[in-house]
Design a binder for these strands. Sequence first.
DNA 1: ACTTGCGTCAACACTGACGTTGAATCACGC
DNA 2: GCGTGATTCAACGTCAGTGTTGACGCAAGT
Lengths: 213, 213
Amino acid sequence: MSGPQSNIERRRLAARAEGGEEYQTKLRQLVNVAADVFKEKGYEAATLAEIAERFGSVRASLYYYVSGKEELFQEAVRDILARNLADAERVQDLDLPVREKLDKLISQLISSYEEHYPHMSVYVQENMQHVNHEPTAWATQMVRETRRYEKVWIDLLQEGMDEGVLRNDIPVVLAANIVFGMCNWMHRWFKPGAKLSAAQVADAVSKVFFEGM
Amino acid sequence: MSGPQSNIERRRLAARAEGGEEYQTKLRQLVNVAADVFKEKGYEAATLAEIAERFGSVRASLYYYVSGKEELFQEAVRDILARNLADAERVQDLDLPVREKLDKLISQLISSYEEHYPHMSVYVQENMQHVNHEPTAWATQMVRETRRYEKVWIDLLQEGMDEGVLRNDIPVVLAANIVFGMCNWMHRWFKPGAKLSAAQVADAVSKVFFEGM
DNA sequence: ACTTGCGTCAACACTGACGTTGAATCACGC
DNA sequence: GCGTGATTCAACGTCAGTGTTGACGCAAGT
C-alpha cells in the first residue's frame, strides 16, 4: 500500500532496482565498514556518524544506500546464518561416519569466522541481544534458523553417543554447549591473518573435542 | 575541588556515608535488578526506566542510590573480577600438581556463573565492549586485572605442557582460548536452578578438557 | 502537635542520535 | 556549453534517554 515515503528512499530504491555495478560495490563496502564498527562497539553503541566517517562520507549519504541502522545490521549478517545452516544440513545428509560429520561441522563453523570476518563475529555477538524479543518477521526467522542449526549439532551428537563413538556420561545439550563455546568464543579473540589460521584452530578444537569426548 | 554538584547527589552521599542498614539493602537489590536487565538487553539497550520499573519505583528515585547508569554497571561487576583474580592467584601458589590447579581454576570460574548470577554473565558479555576504549581509571584497571587473570591460566597451561601433563602440539594461547570458550560461553545459556548445576558443568568441562588435552 | 530528615515523585532541561529535506556538486552524453 | 541523472552535503525536526530540580508524604523522635 504505502509507496516510498521520503525522497531519498525513492532514489535509493531506484538505484537498487537498476542494479548499477558501482552502486552494488559501494553498498557492499559500506556494509563491510558497518560490520567492523558493529563488532568493535556493539550494535547499540555504534553510531551512523562513525560508520559514515570510516566510509569516507557523511551520515546523510548512507541513506542513499540503506534505509537505516537496522537494515545495515541485517545486511551485515543476512547470509551468514542461511549459509551455515545450509552447510550444516548438507553435512548431516552425507553418508559418512558421525565422527567425520561432526568434524566437518566444526571446521565449517570455524572457517566462517575467517571467511566472513567480521560479519560472523557480529552475528554471534549481537544475535540474541536485540533480536530475541522483537517480533519482526526477520527476527523470528533468525531465531528459527538458529534453532535448526543447533538441532543439527545436537542430533549428530546424540547419534554419536548412541553409537558409542562419543562418551555418553555428559548430557547432550551440555556437550553441545561445550563445543559451541570452543568455537564461538572465537568472536572475542580471532582475527584473520594474525598468527593463527582458521585451519589451525579447527584442527586444535577438533583434537580436544574428540579426544575429550 | 569540586564538591557535590546536585542536591540529590549530596543526599545520596550523605546516606551512603551514614551506611544505614536498610539503605544498603535496597542498594544491593537495585544493583541486582540492574544486572538482570543488563544481562537481558545489554548495557546500551538497557534503560534506567525499565530498571526502575522492575525495582518497583521510578527513574528519578534511582539517583538516590547511584550516580547514574555507569555506576550501576560498575557496581554490578565490581567484585567479580577482583574475586576471580584473587582466587586464581591463590590457586596458582598452591603446592599441587599442575593438573589439579587447572582443575580448580575451571571449577572456580564455572561456579562463579552460578554464585554471582547474573553479574558474572554481564561482566563477560559487556566487558570489552564499552570498557576497552574508554580511558577511565576504572576501565584500565578492568583491563589490567583481566590480563593478569588470563596470565595465570596461560602460565599454568604452559607449565603443564612443559611437564608433559598436557599435549604440547597446540599453541598455549590457543589452548587457553579453547578452555575460556568452554567456560565463558555459559553466559549465553546457563541459568542457575535449571536442570544443570554448575558442578555438573564443571565436571563435564573438566573431563572434556583434560582428556582432550 | 512539631520538627526533622529520609525516600519518593512529577516535571523540566539537555544531549546525542536518527531520519529527512532541498539544494549543491559532479560525471557525462549531446 | 547544457541538460540530466547520480551522488553528496549542510541543516532541520524529532525523539528517546539521561541527569536534575524542588517539593511532597511520612515515619520517628521530642
